[in-house]
Design a protein around this nucleic acid. Sequence first.
DNA 1: ATTAGTTTGCGTCAAAATTACACTTTGCTA
DNA 2: TAGCAAAGTGTAATTTTGACGCAAACTAAT
Lengths: 245, 245
Amino acid sequence: MEKKHQLNSRISVDCVILGFDSEGLKVLLIERKPVIENDFIKALPGDLIYDDEALDTAAQRVLTELTGLENIFLEQIGAFGSPDRLNKPEDRQWLKAVRKFPNERVITVAYYSLVNKDLYTPQPSSFAQNAVWVPIEEVQSLAFDHFEILQAGLNQLRNKARVQPIGFNLLPERFILSDLHKLYEAILGRELDKRNFRRKVNKLGLVESLNEKQIGVPHKPSLIYKFNETNYKRLVEDGFDNFGF
Amino acid sequence: MEKKHQLNSRISVDCVILGFDSEGLKVLLIERKPVIENDFIKALPGDLIYDDEALDTAAQRVLTELTGLENIFLEQIGAFGSPDRLNKPEDRQWLKAVRKFPNERVITVAYYSLVNKDLYTPQPSSFAQNAVWVPIEEVQSLAFDHFEILQAGLNQLRNKARVQPIGFNLLPERFILSDLHKLYEAILGRELDKRNFRRKVNKLGLVESLNEKQIGVPHKPSLIYKFNETNYKRLVEDGFDNFGF
DNA sequence: ATTAGTTTGCGTCAAAATTACACTTTGCTA
DNA sequence: TAGCAAAGTGTAATTTTGACGCAAACTAAT
Protein backbone atom coordinates (compact mmCIF):
# COMPACT_ATOMS: atom_id res chain seq x y z
CA MET A 1 0.00 0.00 0.00
CA GLU A 2 1.19 3.43 -0.92
CA LYS A 3 2.36 5.40 2.07
CA LYS A 4 1.47 9.07 2.10
CA HIS A 5 2.59 11.81 4.34
CA GLN A 6 0.24 12.67 7.17
CA LEU A 7 0.16 16.36 7.89
CA ASN A 8 -1.20 18.32 10.76
CA SER A 9 -4.11 20.57 10.02
CA ARG A 10 -5.49 23.62 11.64
CA ILE A 11 -8.99 23.62 12.94
CA SER A 12 -11.37 26.49 12.76
CA VAL A 13 -14.94 27.04 13.80
CA ASP A 14 -17.57 28.98 11.90
CA CYS A 15 -20.92 30.14 13.18
CA VAL A 16 -24.18 30.41 11.31
CA ILE A 17 -26.18 32.76 13.50
CA LEU A 18 -29.73 33.15 12.33
CA GLY A 19 -32.06 35.87 13.47
CA PHE A 20 -35.62 36.67 12.66
CA ASP A 21 -37.60 39.85 12.38
CA SER A 22 -40.68 41.02 10.56
CA GLU A 23 -38.77 40.99 7.30
CA GLY A 24 -37.75 37.36 7.61
CA LEU A 25 -34.72 35.25 8.39
CA LYS A 26 -31.35 36.92 8.53
CA VAL A 27 -27.85 35.66 9.01
CA LEU A 28 -25.10 37.41 10.91
CA LEU A 29 -22.10 38.07 8.69
CA ILE A 30 -18.88 39.91 9.19
CA GLU A 31 -17.07 42.23 6.88
CA ARG A 32 -13.37 41.82 7.36
CA LYS A 33 -10.95 44.65 7.95
CA PRO A 34 -9.64 45.55 4.51
CA VAL A 35 -6.18 44.07 4.59
CA ILE A 36 -6.39 43.72 0.83
CA GLU A 37 -7.88 46.10 -1.67
CA ASN A 38 -11.59 45.98 -2.29
CA ASP A 39 -12.31 43.13 0.04
CA PHE A 40 -16.06 43.21 -0.10
CA ILE A 41 -16.43 39.57 0.61
CA LYS A 42 -18.58 38.80 3.60
CA ALA A 43 -17.94 35.79 5.81
CA LEU A 44 -19.44 33.83 8.61
CA PRO A 45 -17.90 34.69 11.95
CA GLY A 46 -15.17 32.12 12.40
CA ASP A 47 -11.54 31.66 13.32
CA LEU A 48 -8.91 29.14 14.32
CA ILE A 49 -9.29 27.34 17.59
CA TYR A 50 -6.73 27.17 20.33
CA ASP A 51 -4.61 24.28 21.30
CA ASP A 52 -6.45 22.97 24.29
CA GLU A 53 -9.85 24.33 23.60
CA ALA A 54 -13.00 22.27 23.15
CA LEU A 55 -14.74 22.84 19.86
CA ASP A 56 -17.90 24.17 21.46
CA THR A 57 -15.95 26.54 23.62
CA ALA A 58 -13.96 27.77 20.68
CA ALA A 59 -17.13 28.52 18.76
CA GLN A 60 -18.44 30.58 21.65
CA ARG A 61 -15.20 32.46 22.01
CA VAL A 62 -14.75 33.20 18.34
CA LEU A 63 -18.31 34.38 18.01
CA THR A 64 -17.88 36.73 20.93
CA GLU A 65 -14.56 38.03 19.69
CA LEU A 66 -15.85 38.88 16.28
CA THR A 67 -19.39 39.98 16.96
CA GLY A 68 -19.77 40.60 20.66
CA LEU A 69 -22.55 38.01 20.98
CA GLU A 70 -22.25 36.10 24.22
CA ASN A 71 -23.77 32.99 25.74
CA ILE A 72 -25.43 31.81 22.58
CA PHE A 73 -26.59 28.21 22.50
CA LEU A 74 -24.72 26.73 19.57
CA GLU A 75 -25.44 23.44 17.92
CA GLN A 76 -22.95 21.67 15.70
CA ILE A 77 -23.69 21.37 12.00
CA GLY A 78 -20.68 19.28 11.10
CA ALA A 79 -17.17 19.39 9.75
CA PHE A 80 -16.19 20.83 6.41
CA GLY A 81 -12.81 19.79 5.17
CA SER A 82 -12.51 19.83 1.43
CA PRO A 83 -8.78 20.18 0.69
CA ASP A 84 -9.45 23.10 -1.62
CA ARG A 85 -11.89 24.98 0.51
CA LEU A 86 -9.48 27.90 0.97
CA ASN A 87 -8.30 28.03 -2.60
CA LYS A 88 -10.37 30.80 -4.15
CA PRO A 89 -7.90 33.53 -5.20
CA GLU A 90 -9.58 36.25 -3.14
CA ASP A 91 -9.51 34.04 -0.08
CA ARG A 92 -5.86 33.15 -0.58
CA GLN A 93 -4.92 36.81 -0.72
CA TRP A 94 -6.67 37.49 2.51
CA LEU A 95 -5.13 34.49 4.21
CA LYS A 96 -1.67 35.57 3.12
CA ALA A 97 -2.26 38.95 4.65
CA VAL A 98 -3.49 37.76 8.03
CA ARG A 99 -2.35 34.22 8.75
CA LYS A 100 1.01 33.07 9.89
CA PHE A 101 0.77 29.88 7.84
CA PRO A 102 -1.62 30.80 5.06
CA ASN A 103 -1.00 27.65 3.10
CA GLU A 104 -1.86 25.21 5.78
CA ARG A 105 -4.94 23.16 5.41
CA VAL A 106 -7.82 24.15 7.65
CA ILE A 107 -10.74 21.98 8.57
CA THR A 108 -13.66 23.83 9.99
CA VAL A 109 -16.38 22.75 12.34
CA ALA A 110 -19.58 24.67 11.79
CA TYR A 111 -22.15 25.64 14.39
CA TYR A 112 -25.50 27.27 14.17
CA SER A 113 -27.87 29.07 16.41
CA LEU A 114 -31.11 30.96 16.37
CA VAL A 115 -31.27 34.18 18.26
CA ASN A 116 -33.68 36.96 18.83
CA LYS A 117 -32.17 39.61 16.63
CA ASP A 118 -33.45 42.42 18.77
CA LEU A 119 -31.65 41.27 21.87
CA TYR A 120 -28.25 41.18 20.28
CA THR A 121 -26.64 44.16 18.70
CA PRO A 122 -23.46 42.94 17.06
CA GLN A 123 -20.28 44.71 18.14
CA PRO A 124 -17.58 43.92 15.65
CA SER A 125 -14.05 43.54 16.88
CA SER A 126 -10.90 41.53 16.17
CA PHE A 127 -10.52 41.27 12.42
CA ALA A 128 -14.19 42.01 11.87
CA GLN A 129 -14.65 45.53 10.66
CA ASN A 130 -18.36 45.18 10.73
CA ALA A 131 -21.01 42.66 11.71
CA VAL A 132 -24.32 42.85 9.94
CA TRP A 133 -27.61 41.01 9.68
CA VAL A 134 -28.22 40.06 6.06
CA PRO A 135 -31.52 38.65 4.78
CA ILE A 136 -30.76 35.11 3.76
CA GLU A 137 -32.28 35.49 0.33
CA GLU A 138 -29.81 38.28 -0.39
CA VAL A 139 -26.73 36.26 0.39
CA GLN A 140 -25.09 35.53 -2.91
CA SER A 141 -21.59 34.41 -2.19
CA LEU A 142 -19.39 34.26 0.83
CA ALA A 143 -15.78 33.71 1.68
CA PHE A 144 -14.29 30.21 1.53
CA ASP A 145 -17.00 27.55 1.58
CA HIS A 146 -19.20 29.63 3.85
CA PHE A 147 -22.08 29.69 1.44
CA GLU A 148 -22.21 25.94 1.53
CA ILE A 149 -22.03 26.01 5.30
CA LEU A 150 -24.89 28.48 5.47
CA GLN A 151 -27.03 26.23 3.33
CA ALA A 152 -26.22 23.28 5.57
CA GLY A 153 -27.23 25.34 8.58
CA LEU A 154 -30.53 26.33 7.02
CA ASN A 155 -31.21 22.75 6.13
CA GLN A 156 -30.57 21.59 9.63
CA LEU A 157 -32.90 24.27 10.91
CA ARG A 158 -35.68 23.21 8.57
CA ASN A 159 -35.34 19.59 9.48
CA LYS A 160 -35.33 20.42 13.11
CA ALA A 161 -38.34 22.66 12.85
CA ARG A 162 -40.38 19.76 11.57
CA VAL A 163 -39.99 17.72 14.70
CA GLN A 164 -39.24 20.20 17.43
CA PRO A 165 -40.61 23.54 18.47
CA ILE A 166 -38.51 26.48 17.46
CA GLY A 167 -38.83 30.04 18.44
CA PHE A 168 -37.92 30.34 22.07
CA ASN A 169 -34.58 31.77 21.12
CA LEU A 170 -35.77 33.51 18.04
CA LEU A 171 -38.66 35.58 19.28
CA PRO A 172 -38.85 38.09 22.09
CA GLU A 173 -40.18 36.90 25.40
CA ARG A 174 -43.48 38.55 24.60
CA PHE A 175 -44.69 38.04 21.09
CA ILE A 176 -47.83 37.75 19.05
CA LEU A 177 -49.02 34.62 17.31
CA SER A 178 -48.64 36.07 13.86
CA ASP A 179 -44.92 36.53 14.52
CA LEU A 180 -44.64 32.85 15.36
CA HIS A 181 -46.67 32.11 12.27
CA LYS A 182 -44.39 34.20 10.04
CA LEU A 183 -41.38 32.61 11.65
CA TYR A 184 -42.52 29.14 10.69
CA GLU A 185 -43.38 30.25 7.20
CA ALA A 186 -39.90 31.73 6.87
CA ILE A 187 -38.20 28.61 8.16
CA LEU A 188 -40.24 26.15 6.16
CA GLY A 189 -40.38 28.32 3.10
CA ARG A 190 -44.08 27.90 2.43
CA GLU A 191 -47.41 29.32 3.45
CA LEU A 192 -49.28 27.90 6.40
CA ASP A 193 -52.97 28.36 6.96
CA LYS A 194 -53.53 30.78 9.79
CA ARG A 195 -56.37 28.93 11.43
CA ASN A 196 -54.77 25.54 11.22
CA PHE A 197 -51.53 26.92 12.52
CA ARG A 198 -53.16 28.47 15.54
CA ARG A 199 -55.14 25.35 16.26
CA LYS A 200 -51.96 23.29 16.29
CA VAL A 201 -50.07 25.66 18.49
CA ASN A 202 -52.93 25.64 20.93
CA LYS A 203 -53.29 21.93 20.93
CA LEU A 204 -49.61 21.48 21.67
CA GLY A 205 -49.85 23.96 24.50
CA LEU A 206 -46.82 25.77 23.19
CA VAL A 207 -47.91 29.24 24.16
CA GLU A 208 -50.07 31.01 26.65
CA SER A 209 -51.70 34.36 26.50
CA LEU A 210 -50.66 37.11 28.87
CA ASN A 211 -54.09 38.74 28.60
CA GLU A 212 -52.50 41.89 27.36
CA LYS A 213 -53.06 43.58 24.08
CA GLN A 214 -50.82 45.38 21.70
CA ILE A 215 -51.27 49.12 21.90
CA GLY A 216 -50.91 51.73 19.22
CA VAL A 217 -51.20 49.43 16.25
CA PRO A 218 -53.42 50.73 13.46
CA HIS A 219 -55.60 47.65 13.42
CA LYS A 220 -57.16 45.22 15.80
CA PRO A 221 -54.55 44.64 18.50
CA SER A 222 -53.30 41.14 19.07
CA LEU A 223 -53.13 39.40 22.36
CA ILE A 224 -49.60 39.06 23.61
CA TYR A 225 -48.26 35.59 24.27
CA LYS A 226 -45.33 33.91 25.89
CA PHE A 227 -44.05 30.39 25.47
CA ASN A 228 -45.18 27.83 27.97
CA GLU A 229 -41.76 26.80 29.12
CA THR A 230 -42.80 23.44 30.50
CA ASN A 231 -44.57 22.29 27.38
CA TYR A 232 -41.93 23.79 25.17
CA LYS A 233 -39.18 21.84 26.86
CA ARG A 234 -41.19 18.67 26.82
CA LEU A 235 -41.73 19.02 23.11
CA VAL A 236 -38.06 19.69 22.49
CA GLU A 237 -37.24 16.46 24.26
CA ASP A 238 -39.99 14.25 22.90
CA GLY A 239 -40.31 15.77 19.48
CA PHE A 240 -43.72 16.04 17.93
CA ASP A 241 -43.28 13.80 15.02
CA ASN A 242 -46.49 11.91 14.70
CA PHE A 243 -45.56 9.73 11.82
CA GLY A 244 -46.97 6.33 12.26
CA PHE A 245 -44.27 3.71 12.20
CA MET B 1 -7.04 39.95 25.50
CA GLU B 2 -4.94 37.04 26.49
CA LYS B 3 -3.08 35.56 23.54
CA LYS B 4 -2.83 31.81 23.45
CA HIS B 5 -0.80 29.58 21.30
CA GLN B 6 -2.56 28.08 18.33
CA LEU B 7 -1.48 24.56 17.64
CA ASN B 8 -1.94 22.33 14.70
CA SER B 9 -4.05 19.29 15.26
CA ARG B 10 -4.33 15.99 13.61
CA ILE B 11 -7.57 14.92 12.09
CA SER B 12 -8.96 11.44 12.15
CA VAL B 13 -12.12 9.83 10.89
CA ASP B 14 -14.14 7.15 12.64
CA CYS B 15 -16.88 5.01 11.15
CA VAL B 16 -20.01 3.73 12.84
CA ILE B 17 -21.03 0.89 10.54
CA LEU B 18 -24.36 -0.58 11.48
CA GLY B 19 -25.62 -3.85 10.20
CA PHE B 20 -28.81 -5.72 10.75
CA ASP B 21 -29.76 -9.35 10.91
CA SER B 22 -32.43 -11.43 12.53
CA GLU B 23 -30.82 -10.88 15.91
CA GLY B 24 -30.96 -7.12 15.68
CA LEU B 25 -28.69 -4.18 15.09
CA LYS B 26 -24.96 -4.71 15.18
CA VAL B 27 -22.00 -2.43 14.93
CA LEU B 28 -18.74 -3.22 13.23
CA LEU B 29 -15.84 -2.95 15.64
CA ILE B 30 -12.18 -3.70 15.36
CA GLU B 31 -9.87 -5.38 17.78
CA ARG B 32 -6.46 -3.82 17.53
CA LYS B 33 -3.27 -5.76 17.13
CA PRO B 34 -1.94 -6.27 20.65
CA VAL B 35 0.88 -3.77 20.80
CA ILE B 36 0.33 -3.56 24.51
CA GLU B 37 -0.50 -6.31 26.94
CA ASN B 38 -4.08 -7.33 27.32
CA ASP B 39 -5.52 -4.81 24.94
CA PHE B 40 -9.05 -6.06 24.82
CA ILE B 41 -10.50 -2.69 24.05
CA LYS B 42 -12.57 -2.60 20.93
CA ALA B 43 -12.77 0.46 18.75
CA LEU B 44 -14.62 1.91 15.84
CA PRO B 45 -12.67 1.60 12.63
CA GLY B 46 -10.85 4.89 12.30
CA ASP B 47 -7.51 6.47 11.62
CA LEU B 48 -5.72 9.70 10.79
CA ILE B 49 -6.43 11.33 7.48
CA TYR B 50 -3.88 12.29 4.88
CA ASP B 51 -2.70 15.71 4.04
CA ASP B 52 -4.64 16.42 0.91
CA GLU B 53 -7.51 14.08 1.41
CA ALA B 54 -11.15 15.06 1.63
CA LEU B 55 -12.85 13.93 4.82
CA ASP B 56 -15.35 11.71 3.04
CA THR B 57 -12.63 10.08 1.02
CA ALA B 58 -10.56 9.49 4.09
CA ALA B 59 -13.45 7.79 5.83
CA GLN B 60 -13.88 5.44 2.88
CA ARG B 61 -10.19 4.67 2.73
CA VAL B 62 -9.75 4.06 6.42
CA LEU B 63 -12.78 1.83 6.54
CA THR B 64 -11.47 -0.22 3.67
CA GLU B 65 -7.98 -0.46 5.12
CA LEU B 66 -9.18 -1.70 8.47
CA THR B 67 -12.15 -3.83 7.57
CA GLY B 68 -12.11 -4.50 3.84
CA LEU B 69 -15.52 -2.89 3.34
CA GLU B 70 -15.64 -0.93 0.11
CA ASN B 71 -17.95 1.56 -1.50
CA ILE B 72 -20.08 2.15 1.52
CA PHE B 73 -22.27 5.21 1.50
CA LEU B 74 -21.16 7.15 4.52
CA GLU B 75 -22.95 10.04 6.10
CA GLN B 76 -21.27 12.46 8.45
CA ILE B 77 -22.28 12.49 12.09
CA GLY B 78 -20.14 15.39 13.16
CA ALA B 79 -16.86 16.37 14.72
CA PHE B 80 -15.69 15.27 18.14
CA GLY B 81 -12.86 17.30 19.55
CA SER B 82 -12.80 17.31 23.31
CA PRO B 83 -9.21 18.12 24.29
CA ASP B 84 -9.09 15.11 26.59
CA ARG B 85 -10.70 12.59 24.29
CA LEU B 86 -7.46 10.58 24.06
CA ASN B 87 -6.53 10.76 27.70
CA LYS B 88 -7.74 7.47 29.13
CA PRO B 89 -4.63 5.62 30.36
CA GLU B 90 -5.25 2.53 28.19
CA ASP B 91 -5.66 4.69 25.15
CA ARG B 92 -2.52 6.66 25.85
CA GLN B 93 -0.50 3.46 26.10
CA TRP B 94 -1.75 2.30 22.77
CA LEU B 95 -1.10 5.66 21.13
CA LYS B 96 2.45 5.70 22.46
CA ALA B 97 3.03 2.32 20.91
CA VAL B 98 1.72 3.11 17.45
CA ARG B 99 1.72 6.84 16.79
CA LYS B 100 4.66 8.99 15.85
CA PHE B 101 3.29 11.91 17.84
CA PRO B 102 1.15 10.26 20.47
CA ASN B 103 0.64 13.43 22.45
CA GLU B 104 -0.76 15.52 19.72
CA ARG B 105 -4.37 16.52 19.86
CA VAL B 106 -6.64 14.71 17.46
CA ILE B 107 -10.02 15.89 16.33
CA THR B 108 -12.14 13.24 14.74
CA VAL B 109 -14.91 13.44 12.21
CA ALA B 110 -17.38 10.60 12.58
CA TYR B 111 -19.36 8.92 9.83
CA TYR B 112 -22.05 6.33 9.87
CA SER B 113 -23.61 3.92 7.50
CA LEU B 114 -26.12 1.12 7.35
CA VAL B 115 -25.15 -1.97 5.47
CA ASN B 116 -26.56 -5.34 4.74
CA LYS B 117 -24.46 -7.41 7.05
CA ASP B 118 -24.68 -10.47 4.86
CA LEU B 119 -23.11 -8.77 1.88
CA TYR B 120 -20.00 -7.68 3.71
CA THR B 121 -17.65 -10.02 5.40
CA PRO B 122 -15.10 -7.91 7.23
CA GLN B 123 -11.47 -8.59 6.36
CA PRO B 124 -9.30 -7.04 9.00
CA SER B 125 -5.97 -5.56 8.00
CA SER B 126 -3.64 -2.69 8.88
CA PHE B 127 -3.62 -2.38 12.67
CA ALA B 128 -6.91 -4.20 12.97
CA GLN B 129 -6.35 -7.69 14.19
CA ASN B 130 -9.96 -8.51 13.90
CA ALA B 131 -13.18 -6.95 12.72
CA VAL B 132 -16.39 -8.16 14.27
CA TRP B 133 -20.08 -7.45 14.32
CA VAL B 134 -21.17 -6.77 17.88
CA PRO B 135 -24.82 -6.47 18.93
CA ILE B 136 -25.25 -2.89 19.97
CA GLU B 137 -26.79 -3.74 23.29
CA GLU B 138 -23.64 -5.66 24.20
CA VAL B 139 -21.29 -2.78 23.62
CA GLN B 140 -20.16 -1.62 27.01
CA SER B 141 -17.16 0.55 26.51
CA LEU B 142 -14.93 1.42 23.61
CA ALA B 143 -11.62 3.08 22.99
CA PHE B 144 -11.29 6.86 23.21
CA ASP B 145 -14.67 8.57 22.95
CA HIS B 146 -15.98 5.93 20.58
CA PHE B 147 -18.84 4.94 22.81
CA GLU B 148 -20.12 8.47 22.68
CA ILE B 149 -19.70 8.50 18.92
CA LEU B 150 -21.63 5.27 18.60
CA GLN B 151 -24.50 6.73 20.58
CA ALA B 152 -24.48 9.81 18.37
CA GLY B 153 -24.62 7.57 15.32
CA LEU B 154 -27.55 5.58 16.68
CA ASN B 155 -29.35 8.77 17.52
CA GLN B 156 -28.90 10.11 14.06
CA LEU B 157 -30.18 6.86 12.64
CA ARG B 158 -33.29 6.96 14.79
CA ASN B 159 -34.03 10.53 13.91
CA LYS B 160 -33.55 9.82 10.28
CA ALA B 161 -35.74 6.76 10.36
CA ARG B 162 -38.64 8.88 11.52
CA VAL B 163 -38.69 11.00 8.40
CA GLN B 164 -37.04 8.90 5.73
CA PRO B 165 -37.26 5.34 4.62
CA ILE B 166 -34.42 3.16 5.75
CA GLY B 167 -33.56 -0.30 4.73
CA PHE B 168 -32.38 -0.21 1.17
CA ASN B 169 -28.82 -0.58 2.34
CA LEU B 170 -29.63 -2.67 5.31
CA LEU B 171 -31.66 -5.49 3.86
CA PRO B 172 -30.88 -7.86 1.04
CA GLU B 173 -32.30 -7.06 -2.34
CA ARG B 174 -34.99 -9.66 -1.78
CA PHE B 175 -36.54 -9.63 1.64
CA ILE B 176 -39.73 -10.36 3.45
CA LEU B 177 -41.92 -7.83 5.14
CA SER B 178 -41.34 -9.14 8.59
CA ASP B 179 -37.62 -8.44 8.18
CA LEU B 180 -38.42 -4.84 7.39
CA HIS B 181 -40.77 -4.84 10.33
CA LYS B 182 -38.12 -6.18 12.70
CA LEU B 183 -35.63 -3.70 11.33
CA TYR B 184 -37.84 -0.78 12.21
CA GLU B 185 -38.52 -2.17 15.62
CA ALA B 186 -34.79 -2.52 16.19
CA ILE B 187 -34.07 1.00 15.03
CA LEU B 188 -36.89 2.67 16.89
CA GLY B 189 -36.54 0.48 19.93
CA ARG B 190 -40.24 -0.26 20.34
CA GLU B 191 -42.89 -2.60 19.08
CA LEU B 192 -44.88 -1.74 16.02
CA ASP B 193 -48.23 -3.30 15.22
CA LYS B 194 -47.80 -5.71 12.37
CA ARG B 195 -50.94 -4.80 10.50
CA ASN B 196 -50.52 -1.09 10.85
CA PHE B 197 -46.93 -1.37 9.77
CA ARG B 198 -47.83 -3.27 6.64
CA ARG B 199 -50.60 -0.86 5.83
CA LYS B 200 -48.23 2.08 6.04
CA VAL B 201 -45.55 0.46 3.95
CA ASN B 202 -48.13 -0.35 1.31
CA LYS B 203 -49.63 3.09 1.30
CA LEU B 204 -46.21 4.65 0.80
CA GLY B 205 -45.51 2.29 -2.06
CA LEU B 206 -42.18 1.46 -0.52
CA VAL B 207 -42.08 -2.15 -1.57
CA GLU B 208 -43.43 -4.42 -4.25
CA SER B 209 -43.98 -8.13 -4.21
CA LEU B 210 -42.00 -10.35 -6.52
CA ASN B 211 -44.79 -12.96 -6.51
CA GLU B 212 -42.40 -15.53 -5.19
CA LYS B 213 -42.64 -17.39 -1.96
CA GLN B 214 -40.09 -18.49 0.54
CA ILE B 215 -39.41 -22.18 0.27
CA GLY B 216 -38.44 -24.65 2.93
CA VAL B 217 -39.58 -22.62 5.89
CA PRO B 218 -41.47 -24.59 8.52
CA HIS B 219 -44.47 -22.32 8.47
CA LYS B 220 -46.59 -20.41 6.01
CA PRO B 221 -44.11 -19.02 3.51
CA SER B 222 -43.90 -15.28 3.08
CA LEU B 223 -44.06 -13.47 -0.20
CA ILE B 224 -40.73 -12.03 -1.23
CA TYR B 225 -40.48 -8.31 -1.77
CA LYS B 226 -38.10 -5.78 -3.18
CA PHE B 227 -37.97 -2.06 -2.63
CA ASN B 228 -39.68 0.10 -5.19
CA GLU B 229 -36.67 2.16 -6.10
CA THR B 230 -38.60 5.09 -7.54
CA ASN B 231 -40.83 5.56 -4.55
CA TYR B 232 -38.01 4.87 -2.16
CA LYS B 233 -35.90 7.63 -3.65
CA ARG B 234 -38.77 10.04 -3.74
CA LEU B 235 -39.43 9.41 -0.07
CA VAL B 236 -35.78 9.88 0.79
CA GLU B 237 -35.86 13.26 -0.90
CA ASP B 238 -39.23 14.49 0.27
CA GLY B 239 -39.31 12.89 3.64
CA PHE B 240 -42.56 11.49 4.91
CA ASP B 241 -43.04 13.68 7.87
CA ASN B 242 -46.67 14.56 7.90
CA PHE B 243 -46.64 16.90 10.81
CA GLY B 244 -49.05 19.67 10.30
CA PHE B 245 -47.32 23.01 10.43
C1' DA C 1 -52.14 -39.29 7.27
C1' DT C 2 -52.91 -36.64 11.01
C1' DT C 3 -51.46 -33.38 14.30
C1' DA C 4 -48.88 -29.77 16.38
C1' DG C 5 -46.22 -25.83 15.77
C1' DT C 6 -45.05 -21.54 13.62
C1' DT C 7 -45.46 -17.49 10.90
C1' DT C 8 -48.08 -15.10 7.27
C1' DG C 9 -51.55 -12.10 5.92
C1' DC C 10 -55.73 -9.79 6.14
C1' DG C 11 -60.17 -5.96 7.68
C1' DT C 12 -62.91 -3.06 10.50
C1' DC C 13 -64.26 0.35 13.56
C1' DA C 14 -63.80 4.38 16.50
C1' DA C 15 -61.05 8.31 17.50
C1' DA C 16 -58.01 11.83 16.08
C1' DA C 17 -55.86 14.74 12.77
C1' DT C 18 -55.75 17.13 8.62
C1' DT C 19 -57.22 20.19 4.99
C1' DA C 20 -59.75 23.74 2.89
C1' DC C 21 -62.25 27.65 3.29
C1' DA C 22 -64.72 33.22 4.62
C1' DC C 23 -66.48 36.48 7.57
C1' DT C 24 -66.75 39.45 11.73
C1' DT C 25 -64.26 42.17 15.14
C1' DT C 26 -61.26 45.74 16.83
C1' DG C 27 -58.73 49.78 16.94
C1' DC C 28 -56.51 53.38 14.43
C1' DT C 29 -56.34 57.12 10.95
C1' DA C 30 -57.86 60.35 7.77
C1' DT D 1 -67.75 58.30 10.56
C1' DA D 2 -65.81 55.76 6.95
C1' DG D 3 -62.20 53.06 5.58
C1' DC D 4 -58.15 50.32 6.44
C1' DA D 5 -55.55 46.51 8.29
C1' DA D 6 -54.73 42.71 10.86
C1' DA D 7 -56.81 39.62 14.52
C1' DG D 8 -59.53 36.03 15.56
C1' DT D 9 -62.81 32.35 15.02
C1' DG D 10 -65.73 27.28 13.21
C1' DT D 11 -67.17 23.57 10.45
C1' DA D 12 -67.55 19.84 7.36
C1' DA D 13 -65.31 16.34 4.49
C1' DT D 14 -61.47 13.43 4.25
C1' DT D 15 -57.54 11.02 5.79
C1' DT D 16 -54.87 8.82 9.19
C1' DT D 17 -54.16 6.43 13.27
C1' DG D 18 -54.46 2.77 16.70
C1' DA D 19 -56.36 -1.22 18.60
C1' DC D 20 -57.61 -5.74 17.93
C1' DG D 21 -58.33 -11.62 16.42
C1' DC D 22 -58.48 -15.35 13.27
C1' DA D 23 -57.96 -18.27 9.21
C1' DA D 24 -54.45 -20.00 5.89
C1' DA D 25 -50.02 -22.17 4.50
C1' DC D 26 -46.30 -24.87 5.18
C1' DT D 27 -43.01 -28.23 7.75
C1' DA D 28 -41.80 -31.66 11.04
C1' DA D 29 -42.85 -35.13 13.99
C1' DT D 30 -45.54 -38.98 15.05
